[in-house]
């Protein structure tokens, strides 16, 4: 049997909000160590890697490894039925054809069960090579969302240029152009407001706004986002999920023609 309980269903709601614009369906791999999801968007431009560790759950039991194909839109609809303060339990039997979501109100006077059919999926698991990145940037996730939103008005892509001076985000299009520069700021009053730039080599990479604007939907999960970049490899955009795990988005760059 598989059973995973989270006192804060809000975490799972936020996780679904963070993937529902990119993925229509995904395989949830459940094992003793936790829940993992690796899935590409339909255009195979980006990849989502989600990891929720078993020790981060309030209760976790997984007697045998399970691969459960789930509709993300259906799961998202079900999670919308949970109250903000509800506890959520995911439950499935061995060789399951469905998974049950159980929502319990804080004072235990309401118990709701939603059963969702699993789907058979041909899964294509990709190996992600170990990479040492030449630029690693940590910044407030709200700031990154804002930059992506603001620059998206000017073009379909954003160029990330990292140098000793800091990081410059720029976009240009028919209306004109815009750029936003950030410098390192480790003196911020609060740790979550810091901008930390670790640059080994300067670089310039261009990424599609469409995907960046999907990634920033993970902003409510974490105050900080980490961007890891090297020339000619996918961007890694990482958000920690409390003490339970992380969500990493990989995005293939746009290449000069």
């Amino acid at each position: 049997m598989f059973e995973a309980r989270l006192v804060q269903s809000a975490i799972l709601k936020k996780v679904l909000d963070a993937v529902k614009d990119l993925l229509t369906e995904a395989t949830f791999e459940c094992s003793d160590s936790g829940i993992q999801v690796q899935a590409m968007d339909s255009a195979h431009v980006s990849l989502v890697s989600l990891n929720l560790r078993s020790d981060g759950f309030d209760k976790y039991r997984c007697d045998r490894n399970l691969s459960m194909g789930m509709s993300i839109s259906c799961m998202s609809k079900i999670l919308r039925c949970a109250g903000a303060e509800d506890t959520v339990t995911l439950r499935a039997w061995d060789n399951p054809e469905s998974i049950t979501f159980i929502f319990e109100s804080p004072n235990k006077d309401k118990l709701a069960e939603y059963e969702m059919k699993l789907i058979n999926m041909d899964q294509e698991h990709l190996g992600i090579p170990e990479t040492s990145y030449s630029c690693v940037i940590k910044m407030p996730s709200g700031e990154f969302s804002r930059i992506c939103r603001d620059l998206s008005q000017f073009g379909e892509s954003i160029t990330f240029a990292c140098s000793k001076e800091g990081i410059k985000f720029s976009a240009s299009g028919d209306y004109g152009s815009a750029n936003i520069k950030l410098v390192q700021n480790t003196d911020a009053d609060k740790e979550e407001e810091a901008v930390v730039i670790d640059m080994q080599e300067p670089l310039k990479l261009t990424f599609a706004c469409r995907y960046l604007n999907c990634f920033v939907k993970a902003g409510p999960l974490c105050n900080q986002v980490q961007l890891s970049m090297s020339d000619d490899v996918p961007l890694v955009c990482e958000y920690k999920i409390g003490d339970i795990g992380h969500i990493k988005y990989y995005l293939a760059p746009k290449i000069d023609d």
Partner: peptide
């Protein structure tokens, strides 16, 4: 002009 690369050109099937 830029063209969009695929993630599958960087990561191989495991």
């Amino acid at each position: 002009k830029h063209s969009q690369a695929k993630i599958t050109s960087f990561f191989t099937k495991a």
